[in-house]
Amino acid sequence: MFSFKQYSQEILATIILLIALVFLRMIVAKLIRSFAKSSHLFEHRTNLVIKYIHVFMNILVIISLIVIWGVDTKDIFITISSIATVIGVAMFAQWSILSNITSGMILFFSFPFRIGDTIKIYDKDFPIEAEIEDISAFHVTLRTKEGEKTIFPNNLLLQKGISIMPSKFEDREFFD
């Protein structure tokens, strides 16, 4: 039969861990939002990064709860290896999704270009010059001068050479 006295330490540790998770999630979200605000980043990109970090934190809490409740180490390794095998097989088929999400995170924190910038992508087979309309977790939406809408995967943006073209209305100083 379940006894609170018998599991009081585990229950207390679980409560403390869950409270810590709630506070850490709030603190991390505030830090990321302040970083995004000071860097003039868009809300959509900020929310994606916060969501990814929260998922990572939740995974860490689940692992911590497993340790707190004393699940046998052998059972943990069997479960994790089984899950990793299934995920590995699934991700091998979908590696580009993971690659695009990782590239989206890199683009968020390095922000080499922004929505509204005109960029030139140096691709041997498909060179393109277009304005950035949207940057999402998986791809960037571009609009060419001819009005053609192009969806470009984030991982290719990190692999190709890119020039950011000056804006037509950018203030410039002229010297005699």
Rank of each mutant, 00 (worst) to 15 (best):
F2L: 08
F2Q: 02
S3R: 08
Q6T: 15
S8D: 10
S8K: 14
E10Y: 03
E10P: 03
I11E: 02
L12Q: 13
L12F: 14
I15G: 10
L18R: 02
L18I: 07
L21Y: 06
L21H: 07
L21R: 04
V22W: 09
L24S: 15
M26V: 13
I27N: 08
I27F: 14
A29L: 03
K30T: 10
S34H: 10
S34F: 11
F35V: 02
F35R: 08
A36D: 05
A36R: 06
K37N: 12
S38G: 06
H40K: 15
H40M: 10
E43H: 11
E43M: 09
E43I: 10
H44A: 12
L48N: 15
V49N: 04
V49Y: 03
I50P: 00
I50Y: 02
Y52T: 07
Y52A: 12
I53F: 06
M57W: 00
I59Q: 00
V61S: 00
V61P: 00
I62K: 03
I63K: 07
S64Q: 04
L65G: 09
I66H: 01
W69A: 02
G70V: 07
G70Y: 06
V71P: 00
V71L: 14
V71I: 15
D72A: 12
K74P: 00
I78S: 05
T79V: 11
I80K: 05
S82V: 05
S82L: 09
A84R: 04
A84Q: 08
V86K: 05
V89G: 05
A90N: 08
A90P: 01
F92P: 00
Q94V: 08
S96V: 07
S96N: 13
S99A: 11
S99E: 09
I101A: 04
G104M: 05
I106G: 06
I106Q: 07
L107P: 01
L107H: 01
F109D: 07
S110M: 09
S110E: 10
F113C: 03
R114H: 11
R114W: 06
I115N: 05
I119T: 02
K120E: 14
K120G: 00
K120D: 07
K120H: 11
I121M: 06
I128M: 09
E129A: 15
E131Q: 15
E133M: 13
E133H: 09
E133L: 15
D134A: 14
S136A: 07
S136I: 04
A137G: 04
A137L: 13
F138G: 04
V140D: 05
T144K: 13
G147Q: 03
T150C: 10
T150F: 10
I151H: 09
I151W: 10
F152W: 12
N154W: 01
N154M: 05
L156M: 13
L158V: 04
L158S: 04
I162H: 01
S163K: 12
S163Q: 13
I164R: 06
M165V: 15
S167A: 15
K168M: 12
K168S: 14
K168E: 15
F174N: 12
